[in-house]
């Protein structure tokens, strides 16, 4: 390698990863984009060449548009709920003694490794008509008859929150560990009680973690497939399910591809807007 420029060396080191990315990510994506610009054989009026007909359908057919809208809504609600559940856990993790911290972190990693199907099945059982949650509600007299909780948007959201929790907790915990303790102490010395010191300084300073966690969670929820399939119903289908139906049942690859590309674009657009907003609000941070 004598005489090789550092740039060439760097490129050669990156090459395997680049090849992998191109072969398994960019090529299928490109194929899908191209597919989405064509007509399917069973379209009413098949046309040759590339056109935007499938996108027109995504926007104008009631089912796919509603599914896309629902996907954004479910993802936004799930992200917000995940944040609300994850933040106290991350704070606890940050404050607790080393032994407990390790125990909780291991639990989180184990849950990441366990099968999504198994976890969703767990929620199906838990939220079932005769499941423990309903039994508790009946026993406490909160409900007179078992509530229908499974196969709904709500059940989907609960399971999505559960699934996304580690992706929210870890970045927030990471951001908390980077806040120098002197900030909280400075707030306290200036007369802020523990809670006000927390909300006045820790919360704003953990913003990078909140931003990372919400971005990850939102992207994960937008592309969710198994969870809404198991815990929702056809009436609460998310866009990935509707697209899968086109791929697997209708065998309409162009229409399915257009939905996936539309999903990708919408996700990207929302996250871009979110990033710009956060940047504008927190532009003064060092």
């Amino acid at each position: 390698m004598q005489g090789a420029s550092p740039r060439l060396t760097g490129f050669l080191l990156l090459a395997p990863a680049l090849v992998f990315l191109i072969a398994f990510y960019l090529v299928p994506l490109g194929t899908m984009v191209e597919e989405s610009l064509r007509s399917a054989p069973n379209d009413m009026d098949p046309r040759a060449g590339l056109h935007l007909f499938q996108y027109d359908r995504v926007w104008n057919s009631g089912r796919s548009w509603r599914a896309l809208e629902r996907t954004v809504r479910i993802s936004a609600i799930s992200t917000l709920l995940t944040l609300l559940v994850a933040y106290p856990i991350a704070l606890f993790l940050f404050q607790v003694r080393a032994f407990w911290r390790t125990a909780i972190l291991i639990t989180i990693f184990v849950s990441l490794a366990s099968s999504l199907i198994v976890r969703n099945y767990g929620w199906l059982v838990t939220l079932a008509d005769a499941g423990p949650v309903n039994q508790l509600l009946l026993a406490l007299g909160i409900a007179d008859e078992p509530l229908r909780m499974v196969y709904s948007e709500g059940a989907t959201i609960v399971a999505l929150v559960h699934y996304a929790l580690p992706f929210m907790i870890l970045p927030i915990y990471g951001a908390l560990t980077r806040i120098p303790p002197s900030f909280v102490e400075a707030a306290q010395s200036l007369g802020a009680g523990p809670w006000r010191a927390l909300f006045g300084t820790v919360l704003p300073l953990s913003m990078p973690g909140i931003f990372g966690g919400t971005t990850l969670t939102f992207a994960i929820c937008m592309s969710a497939f198994v969870t809404p399939l198991m815990l929702g119903s056809p009436a609460t289908a998310m866009i990935s399910q509707v697209a899968a139906e086109q791929f697997l049942v209708q065998l309409n690859f162009p229409f399915g591809s257009a939905m996936i590309v539309a999903l990708t674009l919408v996700t990207f657009a929302i996250l871009l807007a979110y990033t710009l907003l956060i940047r504008a609000v927190f532009r003064h941070h060092a």
């Binding site: 120098p180 002197s182 900030f183 102490e185 400075a186 707030a187 306290q188 010395s189 200036l190 007369g191 802020a192 009680g193 523990p194 010191a197 006045g200 300084t201 704003p204 300073l205 927190f282 003064h284 941070h285 060092a286």
Partner: peptide, 22 residues
């Protein structure tokens, strides 16, 4: 007394100025 009730002025070595405030 907890720290916030002691009415002391502290200057930390790293200053600990809140970065999100003017």
């Amino acid at each position: 007394l907890p720290p916030h009730k002691r009415n002391l002025g502290l200057v930390f070595q790293d200053y600990a100025l809140f970065p999100h405030m003017t």
